[in-house]
Design a protein around this nucleic acid. Structure first.
Lengths: 182, 182
DNA sequence: AGCGTTTAAGACCGAATGGTACAAAACAAC
DNA sequence: GTTGTTTTGTACCATTCGGTCTTAAACGCT
């Protein structure tokens, strides 16, 4: 009945996620965003509202596409140890300067944008629970720490690594470090 | 011989640090910056160059004023245990939404500004060495980890906490967590 | 073919951006 | 008091920002 869309909604949203992930909210100009989404202003504002709404939608997309994948992988991990299951989280390539979108959003938007902060907290909680499920599956008890505490520790290490990784010069033996914790 | 300055260079730089710390580089507009520094455009550009140079100078100021204080305090800490010495680092008030300027700068500028990234790495190294010196002073050996590894772990936890703290809803028992590590 | 509806493209907008130019002002030296 | 030098305040600048508006195009339906 009407002119069909020339863009795919999900593809465009993924493009938005990619560019926001890489450059942050303020670092992404509207032309940047439009190029990444493969559309022009007219279509964009009609379909996505505005830049801010698109950023929040991109956070949701990250939750669905990236966090869910990690959580799933942790949930059905067939590796022989908790360390082996968790290690991939700590082995992002050195050349990847995007870091973790959750971490980026926390730092950039956290204090000034409650809605974005809420989304990042929700995603962090999902990660925390997934880490905990791995620990519980292998049930390695420790006299020093409860498993939820260890999971929270590992989550903090993860975000710390993501933050520091953005400044480069990281590369540590995470396998040894993780083994000393779980 | 000439008209005297009406502003104090160090006070102005401290003001710049405060506002960049709180709002980041891109989140700070020139009017914001000028207000925080207590000066007008003419004086600013003549004395500080431009926004970017001021940001880098603010990072140096943070190193001198904040990091040095923390490092000194760790170096001469009279507390009876490593945990007691390190705990203050993890007890920033909940209401403080600025987080850690190093962490903020790493995430915001890291990938796109090698000079800023280099400064953040240098400051992180200072913190790491200070943490290590505390651990070595109390010399609590562990079969699982070397002391430098533990120091690096604690540094990562610190940045992780700073990043997550910006999204709110933190507050954990860091004393227990630290005790389980050192 | 004509109509109704939605999309696409981009011209256009006011506001805000970081930065410059310039004139007035405040001192020391003489 | 005059001069030389630096600081100060502000008017001004081009550019870019996010966002709107208008027009043409592309369909399904009848």
């Amino acid at each position: 009945m009407a002119r069909p869309r020339e863009f795919n909604y999900d593809d465009a949203l993924r493009g938005a996620m990619e560019i926001f992930w890489q450059r942050g909210y303020r670092g992404t100009t509207l032309p940047d965003l439009l190029a990444a989404m493969g559309m022009t202003r007219g279509s964009f504002y009609q379909a996505f509202g505005d830049k801010e709404a698109t950023y929040l939608a991109a956070l949701d997309y990250y939750d669905t596409a990236v966090v869910s994948t990690v959580v799933d992988r942790l949930g059905r991990c067939a590796a022989p140890s908790a360390v082996a299951c968790l290690l991939p989280m700590f082995q992002s390539s050195e050349a990847d300067t995007r870091g973790c979108f959750i971490c980026n959003a926390m730092v950039e938007m956290g204090p000034e944008h409650p809605e974005a902060a809420q989304k990042t907290r929700a995603m962090a909680d999902r990660l925390r629970r997934a880490i905990l499920s791995v620990l519980e599956h292998f049930a390695s008890p420790s006299p020093d720490r409860t498993l939820p505490e260890t999971a929270d520790l590992i989550l903090h290490l993860y975000f710390g690594k993501q933050a520091m990784g953005k400044a480069g010069g990281a590369a540590a033996d995470w396998e040894g470090r993780l083994r000393s914790l779980v």
